[in-house]
Design a binder for these strands. Structure first.
Lengths: 358, 358
DNA sequence: CTGAAAGCGCTAACAA
DNA sequence: TTGTTAGCGCTTTCAG
């Protein structure tokens, strides 16, 4: 790992052609046929122990590494998949992609990274390139505002998974976090802590996530025998500034203010916390606050540290990997799957520390 | 792009074998030899206009797409590169990787994404896999605290670039942001605005970036005829909390407080801004603040919006792409290259808006 | 137990 | 102008 200059390779026993070694080199040096060498290297067929050992030794010595391209050509499986993001890869897609890559790597599958940046032409060219490279599967991620057009699976039968994005087609497999459930988790927790009036400050309603989280919010309220009073549901923007503004508005009236806030993301929650502090309201004593995303840098920098809903993006990525492998093995999987979120409890909601529950 | 069910493919004129079409299919349907088809498809050799047209038409009709694996096998260039991150891909590496991918994609080169997560064994396996796939080049990114071990270029002659990470070896090419220059930019700007006492709150000194930024800070101070007074240089942590603490400490003494802060990253700067506000010091009137990283979510959420040094990570990624292409073409490039940062001016430093200068 | 040969899909040099 | 053929590096039957 450390010695950079490996001139010994150059001065190897026999004179070897430049470039990576081939199985032909191994065979020649071992004094056997190519077929025999192949058997030894793939541990297939019957072979005397000594020839096998010899072949393997030679292979190791000359640092033989099979050419996967050639293997793929033969078995018509490239052992690669593509991951295409039409939004550029962001904070949300990254953990997903990482977990996916990890899962697939364990199966010897490599991942091509492509970002199309919402440019349909670019996307088309990416898909063309990937198909040309004979990928065995494709994962598509997108930003979540809108449902995207399905990918035309120009090569029929190519397994495709949409993750963190939705597509209309019924035959497609879509993997998403359970936004509704996640929201319910948060609100249920607040209710269980005795909060009676829980407001919801969130992002733009054109996001499906916003609508789903609202649904979860209302469901959990109902469950607890509570109701959202008019003005307690505040769709807006995904920014800190909106969090501040909404709080200012919500708490400017003297009477009947909320004793808890469930925020649509962590940035809104941070803005809310700041505004509360500046208005002299104590968190969590007067007002408990819960965020969404569990974005480390936001959540830990908050004062107090922010309780937040985690979408378990890595689990989503892993699941995508598992599903893709299944599909590559021939299984047909379709539909919309929503994976559970979890609540990560910190100080801002006034509950016991460190406990995470689902 | 929209029609998902393309059954017409199935019911194509002739019965075609399943799976992707091959050049053999094209040739057969066009009634020519494979060689001829190849000539037409690659626009090589001389060919009658009509046969060429016919071949191309057929190819289009059956959605022929050349098998890049086979092409690669032939020309011993895979048209792929690997990008290996030993830290997991984070906020900094992502923009780099994206820009790199974009640059290479334009040349028809696809990018394998690998994250080794600081596990040497995993890294080794990743490299093995990539070499097996006969990548034409490799980009290595890392977190910046420590200089990493160079990759053993098991296949001699494989172009390798280290970006956003350093390696001891003199023959390696390392691409980095010019931290010193970036810091100087910030401090020079503050000095030009008339600030006389500029403190520097920053991260842990084991980061090379911290040491370089300190150097830039001191150099720019000297340039302006200023000096850092004892206690004005505050290494610590990369967190908001540290920014708050450092400010509290710096400004608790009654007399002789700084009139400007240059912070080692945007989180520290945010903490500093919060603390200043809570101590009743106005920004930028009393104290100007500049951050580092120009991390959008941090910078825009700050009150007031934060002036910050941008490392131009996308330029770094693009440059990595360009260099890699050069190296793949046979050019030898070595050494440490530092790319300029730029200053993005916002309200927190009390200068004219929106102007960015280098 | 080992070798020879066909073929994965494509390109390029050489024949016709 | 078009066809034939020999590989690229590997696996896998099928003979020996």
């Amino acid at each position: 790992m450390t010695d950079l200059i490996r001139d010994d390779l150059e001065s190897s026993d026999e004179r070897l052609p430049r470039g990576p070694r081939t199985i032909r080199d191994v065979a020649r040096l071992a004094g056997v046929s190519i077929g025999t060498a192949s058997k030894a290297l793939n541990a297939s067929g019957r072979l005397s122990a000594e020839t096998r050992a010899k072949i393997l030794r030679i292979a190791r010595e000359i640092e033989y590494r099979p050419n996967v391209l050639a293997q793929s050509l033969h078995r018509t499986r490239s052992m690669t998949v593509g991951i295409l993001s039409n939004d550029s890869f962001g904070r949300f897609t990254f953990p997903i992609v990482e977990a996916l890559e990890r899962r697939l790597f364990d199966q010897g599958i490599a991942v091509f990274m492509c970002n199309a940046t919402d440019d349909p032409l670019r996307e088309r060219r990416h898909i063309d390139q990937l198909l040309g490279k004979r990928i065995d599967g494709l994962v598509v991620t997108a930003r979540r505002a809108d449902r995207r057009e399905p990918i035309e699976p120009a090569a029929r039968g190519l397994p495709v998974i949409y993750v963190f994005s939705r597509v209309e087609n019924r035959n497609a497999l879509c993997l998403l976090p359970d936004d509704k459930g996640g929201a319910a988790l948060a609100v249920r927790h607040l209710a269980a802590l005795g909060r009676r009036r829980i407001a919801h400050i969130t992002g733009p309603e054109r996001f499906e996530a916003v609508r789903l989280r609202e649904a979860g919010y209302r469901a959990a309220l109902a469950e607890a025998g509570l109701a959202a009073r008019p003005g307690d549901y505040r769709p807006g923007h995904w920014s800190e500034a909106w969090g501040r503004d909404a709080v200012q508005d919500l708490f400017s009236r003297r009477r009947a203010v909320p004793d808890a806030l469930f925020c649509g993301n962590d940035q809104i929650a941070r803005g809310a916390l700041d505004a509360l502090r500046e208005m002299g309201r104590a968190t969590p004593a007067d007002v408990a606050v819960v965020g969404f995303d569990n974005w480390e840098v936001m959540v830990k920098g908050a004062r107090p540290p922010l309780t937040s809903v985690d979408m378990n993006l890595d689990a989503l990525g892993r699941e995508a990997g598992v599903c893709l492998l299944d599909m590559m093995a021939g299984r047909v999987i379709t539909g919309v799957r929503r994976l559970p979120c979890s609540l990560v409890v910190r100080d801002s909601c006034g509950a016991g520390q460190h406990s995470a529950f689902e």
